[in-house]
Simulated scan of single mutants.
Amino acid sequence: MPTAELPSATPPSTAVPAVDLRGVAVRYGPAKAPVTALEGVTLTVAEGEFVVLVGPSGCGKTTLLRVVAGFEHPTDGTAEVLGAVPSPGRGTGLVFQQPRLFPWRTVGGNLAFALARQGLARTERPARIMELLTLVGLPGFERRRTWELSGGQQQRVAIARALAGTPRLLLLDEPFAALDAITRERLQEELRTLADVTGTTVVFVTHSAEEAVLLGSRVLVMAAEPGRVAAELPIGLERGPHTEVAALRATPEFARLRGELNLALTSAAAGTGEEGQLPPAS
C-alpha cells in the first residue's frame, strides 16, 4: 500500500481547519528534568472530519485532546482551534470516559444547566432539551433521574450535554471504554450517524484499533517517549445513512484496514519503523 506521509497530517482542503497544531510540545515538572508528554505534534483537522487518535497508554492522546479543548497550553509551538487560541467551551463540546452527570438533577436538569451556561433563555430550554434527547435516542427521558439510567443511557446524556451549545467541534476521550460490547456497538453506530447528520467535526480518543477503523474518516497513530503522531491511516469505508457496524466489520476492506492499523500500533509501541509511514500490509 502507498505510505501515508507526515508531519503535516493534513487532509486535502483549502478551508480554514477546525484544528491546527504546529510543533506542539507539552512538558511538565522542573526545567532541569521535565517530563515530556508531547513533542513536535503538527496536524490539522478539517471541518466535518471524524479523526481518531489511537495508541498505547502514556502516548499523550488525552494531553493532545486537552490542548485542543483549551485545558492545556503548549510549552512550545502553536495551537489554533476554529481560528482562535483554544479556550474551554468556545465552540467545542467535550465528552469524558465517565458521564460525569449531576446525580441530584434529572436528565432534563443536567441539560438545562448546560443550556443556561450557553445563555439560552429559560423559556426556550424545554424545546431544546427535547430536541437533544431525540437526537441521542432518549426522547421522553427528561424527567428521569440519572441513577435510573444504564451506563449507555448516561453516556448518551453526556453526549447530548456536549451538543447543547451546538458545538462545531466535539471532543471525546474514550467515551465507550467502560461499556459492554453490545451497548458500545450501538453507541458507535449512533455517534457516527450523529456526526454525519449534524456535520460536527469530531476528534475521538480510543485504545481500540477496531473502534478507530469503525468510526474514523482518518486515524492518527500515536507513540510514546515522547508523545507524538507516528503515522496516519485514511479510512475509505463506504458508509451509508443506515450502515450497521456489523455490516462494516464483515467487509474485506475493514479487515485489511484493521490489520494495517494493528501493524502500525505494534511498530509505534516498539519504537521501530520510519516515522510518518505505516508498515506494509502483510
Rank of each mutant, 00 (worst) to 15 (best):
V202D: 08
R117T: 07
E185I: 00
L170S: 06
R184C: 05
T272Q: 07
G140V: 01
V85Q: 15
V24E: 07
L43M: 15
P12Y: 05
L214I: 14
V205R: 08
A195F: 08
L278N: 15
T63R: 07
R90W: 05
T92E: 14
R156L: 01
Q98L: 03
Q98N: 12
V24Y: 02
D180E: 07
V213P: 09
E39V: 04
A177E: 13
A31F: 01
T78R: 15
Q155E: 14
P86R: 04
G93A: 08
L82Y: 04
A69N: 14
V52N: 12
S208H: 01
G199I: 05
P226Q: 12
T251I: 11
G199P: 10
L115R: 01
A164N: 04
G119N: 08
Q154Y: 02
R156I: 00
A162H: 11
G60Q: 13
L6P: 11
A178E: 03
S87I: 00
F50L: 13
A33D: 13
F96E: 03
A160H: 04
E39N: 14
L43S: 08
A270C: 10
L149M: 09
G152P: 04
D76N: 14
D196M: 15
P103K: 10
L261Y: 13
A223Q: 12
A33F: 01
E72N: 09
G29S: 02
R144E: 00
G58H: 05
S150D: 09
L261K: 10
P103L: 07
D173M: 06
Q153S: 02
Q155L: 03
T44P: 02
E148Y: 02
T193Y: 06
L170F: 02
E244G: 10
A223R: 09
K61N: 11
R218P: 03
L21G: 06
T272P: 03
E260V: 15
V157E: 00
N262Y: 02
L278K: 09
V95S: 05
E185T: 09
G140S: 08
A121K: 13
P30L: 04
A212F: 11
K61A: 09
R145W: 12
G152D: 05
Q153T: 00
G216H: 11
P30K: 08
A79Q: 10
E189Q: 11
F96Q: 03
W104E: 11
K61H: 14
F113R: 05
T266M: 13
V19N: 03
Q155I: 03
L149K: 05
T193H: 14
R105K: 13
L101P: 01
A270M: 15
L248H: 05
S13N: 07
P139H: 06
L170R: 01
